[in-house]
Amino acid sequence: MLTAQFLYGGAGLVLFALGLWSFLVHEPLLRKIIALNITGAGVFHVLIAIAYRGDVAPPDPVPHALVLTGIVVAVSATALALMLGARLQDAEEEDRRR
């Protein structure tokens, strides 16, 4: 099942590259935050693919635990970034009105 593992991890690499591209190229903060999340999803994909150890052996639990940790950290960072972005927008609108 090497093909499935390669395709799964390869899809993760594609997501990683696409997310990084969007993060670098697009200016709006919200797009950057979403792009960074897609990048993270790509990394999680690769880690899950790496954990696969063939049809007989059970998957490696260590990368699975890393992904779980990573998701929680990504969610926390995203929530904080969204809040900061919203406050930044409020401040900019206030400046413009003055």
Binding site: V72, V73, S76, A77, A79, L80, M83, L84, R87
Partner: peptide
């Protein structure tokens, strides 16, 4: 980390 992120959110108003 989760707690720190929430403290950050609360500190923003």
């Amino acid at each position: 980390v989760l707690l720190a992120a929430l403290l950050g959110i609360w500190s923003l108003g």
